[in-house]
């Protein structure tokens, strides 16, 4: 879920074209869950190969990344490792929500209510081990690097960004900027026309950009204070947040009192959580300290073999996309970022 900082940080609209040349650390699990929940058939069933194995994630990874690469955006995927212990409650909550959605989905199907079924189907996605293997395989074939993070993927992604190894972090969660990402891009892997969950309405999602430096400067606070605001609103490590505190109040409290310990009205509630440990997760998370990030040329034949022969993708569509990529390969420059560190 992550912290909802939208009202405070006010993301700026951008376009994929403007992001050309950027190197982006993508929060892989975040993107994969999106693909799994969005890329579905008429009655909400995921895409599958002939063996009944889900392929929604592969479809998203392939078509999305081809699009990014052909626009000159270079992603590196960061996969989650072991979650911090403090995340247990949030993980349990998500699991329960998923189980409930599965029950509701099946009941709707029994009733023959396709609309309802699709609505619940989107919340049932589970990331299986074979999907992670698929992910690594298709990324390698596309020439896109990936990193296995020791803990939270977005923490390592943010770290790569603050070290200057990538220019941006892509995630839907604002947590990335609490983790220190200099620049966060939202909607990178899902921009375009998209159906709203639970509604039969289509919207066009555009990428948005949040710059940590600009946010802190505008609000007149430090990153430590932004983390305190996050804790007031609720993070993955204290999902409920504080009673009756919304973004405006949280900002006002931290600006007025400086830090959590000094916010008089919340002291009773504050005692119930280990806020120092949460701060510590954001300020000093477990991350990969170094990374060898290299982009390679895609392997068109390997991609067709994997997606079309093994996973039953349409060969015409896959080949069409690969052609788009080849055209781009012929005309791109490196990014100067490479020489900054």
């Amino acid at each position: 879920m992550g912290v909802n900082l939208r009202e405070i940080v006010k993301p700026r609209k951008t376009t994929l074209e403007q992001l050309s040349g950027r190197t982006v650390a993508v929060d892989a699990y975040n993107a994969l869950y999106q693909f799994l929940s969005i890329i579905r058939g008429e009655s909400g069933e995921p895409l599958m190969d002939r063996e009944g194995k889900i392929t929604s994630h592969l479809s998203g990874l392939f078509y999305r990344n081809v699009n990014l690469l052909s626009l000159g955006i270079r992603p590196v995927y960061v996969l989650d490792g072991k979650p911090p212990e403090m995340k247990t409650i949030e993980i349990q909550r998500r699991k329960a929500a998923r189980q409930e959605a599965v029950v509701m989905y099946e009941r709707a199907l029994e009733r023959g209510d396709i609309v309802e079924a699709k609505k619940y189907a989107q919340a049932t996605s589970v990331l299986k081990d074979y999907m992670i293997d698929d992910t690594k395989r298709i990324l390698t074939l596309l020439g896109i690097p990936y990193i296995d993070a020791p803990s939270e993927g977005e923490a390592t992604a943010a770290h790569l960004c603050s070290m200057g190894l990538v220019s941006d972090v892509a995630s839907q969660d604002y947590d990335s900027i609490l983790f220190g990402a200099k620049r966060l891009i939202r909607n990178l892997t899902i921009s375009g026309r998209r159906k709203l969950p639970y509604k039969n309405v289509f919207v066009t999602l555009e990428p948005e950009e949040v710059e940590l430096h600009a946010v802190l400067e505008e609000l007149g606070i430090t990153r430590e204070q932004l983390i305190d605001i996050g804790i007031l609103l609720g993070t993955d490590f204290n999902p409920d947040g504080f009673a009756k505190i919304g973004p405006k109040t949280a900002l006002k409290y931290i600006k007025t009192y400086g830090k959590l310990e000094k916010v008089a009205p919340i002291q009773d509630e504050l005692k119930k959580i280990d806020y120092n440990a949460i701060r510590e997760i954001f300020l000093h998370p477990k991350v990969s300290q170094s990374a060898d990030i290299k982009w390679d040329h895609p392997d068109p034949k390997g991609i067709v073999d994997f997606l079309c022969s093994e996973k039953d993708f349409s060969e015409d569509r896959v080949k069409n996309s690969l052609q788009k990529l080849e055209k781009r390969e012929e005309s791109k420059s490196e990014s100067l970022e490479k020489w900054f560190s």
Partner: peptide, 9 residues
């Protein structure tokens, strides 16, 4: 300054 694609400065 750099251009938006960070190719030139």
């Amino acid at each position: 300054a750099m251009d938006p694609s960070h190719v030139a400065l």
